[in-house]
Design a protein around this nucleic acid. Structure first.
Length: 510
RNA sequence: GGCGGCAUAGCUCAGUUGGCUAGAGCAAUCGGUUCAUACCCGGUGGGUCAAAAGUUCAAGUCUUUUUGCCGCCA
């Protein structure tokens, strides 16, 4: 039987500055989904990368007296370093400056031009160079400046190529309306529907004002402009031009995970490009929310940009991953602040999970010399624990399939709480003092170790390092499958567990 | 300005098609326990469900108005 495949992408990030916690958030979500799918037996392709062209990069590089590629090389290296530290399991990293990508973009341009959907025209607009954005008269701020950065805009007029998006307006509208799964969450879907209903203008897809980009085929004074260049990255690494079999295997993509600010480009523009190419549209574009910092939008001018690398240095990657996945509901904006992070680390990771593992291993070592003995019979309390374990694994799969990640995290932690309560109900330290309770003690300790084995599997997409450490302490194989979490009682009799080691230290608040 | 959304405990939020004394987690407070990372378990307090009017036997839920916040509008 052929393995099911799964292709997930993040946006390619722009190397004009260091990445902030919002980028880490998006990539962590994508990584978690990718890990879950691998755990569930899918053949996964997980792509992230960098979008390296444009006037802003060219100017910044000039200002630093380096070439654009020298400039981006350095920043992109820092992206890759961050993903490594965050345990991001991407299968490829696409850079739009790579030859393999140039080839694809030019070919896509050619095909659509040959079809007659790209034409040469004249673009006139009010341009803000730092933001690389055109604005309309209406959008400018009260001083007639850029509404984003409040610097003056320049009136620019240039020869440019246009993509006939207007031709596809009806088709893309129908597609979005007919396929509710294509664009989530629903609020974004509604916005896009009303946007298209206002009528679509053709899209300007080339520039002559700078040259750090991919040249238009046969008209090299033009470079291909931003979205037409960037979006096609999703086709490049899966063999669009050079490996038909691979391309068939992974396209259409299962999920493009994107920030809410670029949903429009990923549904309307990307959808129309693919329609023009005669290629299927991705199965889903999911627009996630933003991280706000203590209620404030993150921005350079406010000086509240959070550097994920510093957080990882201080708290470790799993703590950061856990917080992002648990605290922020996918699709909604979420609040990030240091107190809440420390709170979560202490209460969920150190107290609930870390201590559960520690006390369990400690009791197995203390009362049974580290050996798991056969479990025979069992009380109602034992049965309810086993049922809840099975129930948890089942619901977990459903929630993760539906991308309800924070709900899935909460569900697992509910089971962790159940385990702590189980210890209280069964009081193994009392059983240990009573010779006649030996069997009950063995049962309880077995059930706890088994529950922790299941927990380790279920949390592996969220906090992979911690999952590995739990399996290590339980002295179990790292080769895990989701199915293994769905059956209670897989631990072997006479299995010897390891010594407890603290998973997460509590963080003292000064 | 146009279209859309939201407003529920100190905080973050659940509340299917209107139907028992409005729930959870965290925080607060009290108690229990000792295997454990001053941890874990249990109890308690706390809400005019933004405001007003309406429909209904019955409204957090439906309608209208007001106020406040948010999103989209190349």
């Amino acid at each position: 039987m052929e393995k099911k495949t799964f292709y997930i992408t993040t946006p390619i990030y722009y190397p004009s500055a260091k990445l902030h916690i919002g980028h880490a958030y998006c990539t962590t979500i994508a990584d978690t989904i990718a890990r879950f799918k691998r755990l569930a037996g899918y053949e996964v392709f997980f792509l992230t990368g960098s979008d390296e062209h444009g006037q802003k990069i060219q100017r910044t590089a000039e200002a630093q007296n380096v070439t654009p590629i020298e400039y981006v090389d350095k920043i992109v290296a820092s992206f890759q370093e961050l993903w490594k530290r965050l345990e991001i399991s991407n299968d490829d990293f696409i850079r739009t400056s790579e030859p393999r990508h140039h080839k694809v973009v030019q070919e896509v341009f050619r095909r659509i031009r040959d079809k007659g959907d790209i034409y040469k025209g004249e673009y006139t607009g009010l341009y803000c160079t730092p933001c690389e954005s055109y604005w309309t008269e209406l959008q400018l701020d009260e001083n007639g400046c850029c509404p984003d950065c409040h610097r003056p805009v320049e009136k620019v007029s240039e020869e440019a190529y246009f993509f006939k998006i207007s031709k596809y307006a009806d088709s893309i509208l129908k597609y979005i309306e007919d396929n509710p799964e294509f664009l989530e969450p629903k609020s974004r879907r509604n916005e896009m529907i009303s946007f298209i209903k206002q009528g679509l203008e053709d899209l300007c897809i080339s520039r002559t004002s700078f040259n750090w980009g991919i040249p238009v085929p046969d008209d090299e004074k033009h470079v291909i402009y931003v979205w037409f260049d960037a979006l096609t990255n999703y086709l490049t690494p899966i063999g669009f031009l050079d490996d038909e079999e691979k391309f068939k295997k992974y396209w259409p993509a299962d999920v493009h995970l994107v920030g809410k600010e670029i949903v429009r480009f990923h549904t309307i523009i990307w959808g129309c490009i693919l329609m023009a190419l005669g290629i299927e549209l991705p199965k889903k574009v999911y627009g996630h929310g933003w991280l706000v910092i203590s209620g404030d939008k993150m921005s350079k001018s406010k000086g509240n940009v959070v550097d994920p690398m510093l957080l990882i240095d201080e708290f470790g990657s799993d703590a950061i991953r856990y917080f992002l996945l648990r605290e922020i509901v996918l699709g909604q904006d979420g609040n990030f602040n240091r107190d809440a992070l420390i709170q979560r680390i202490n209460s969920d990771l150190a107290n609930d999970l870390g201590n559960l593992l520690h006390r369990t291993l400690n009791m197995i070592n203390k009362f049974q010399k580290g050996v798991l003995l056969e479990s025979v019979g069992g009380t109602e309390i034992d049965e309810s624990l086993k049922n809840e374990a099975a129930e948890t694994a089942r619901e977990y799969r459903v929630l993760m399939e539906n991308l309800q990640i924070s709900d899935a995290v909460k569900l697992v932690w509910k089971f962790i709480s159940r385990c702590n309560k189980y210890i209280d109900e069964t009081a193994p330290w009392k059983l240990a003092k009573d010779e006649t309770q030996k069997q009950n003690l063995s049962n309880v300790l077995y059930n706890l170790a088994e529950s922790l084995r299941i927990i380790a599997i279920l949390i592996s997409p969220f906090i992979p390092t911690t999952s590995r450490r739990i399996l290590e302490q339980l002295q179990l194989s790292q080769d895990i499958k989701l199915e293994d979490a769905e059956t209670f009682g897989k631990l072997e009799i006479n299995h010897v567990v390891g010594k407890p080691e603290q998973l997460f230290p509590r963080i003292e608040i000064e």
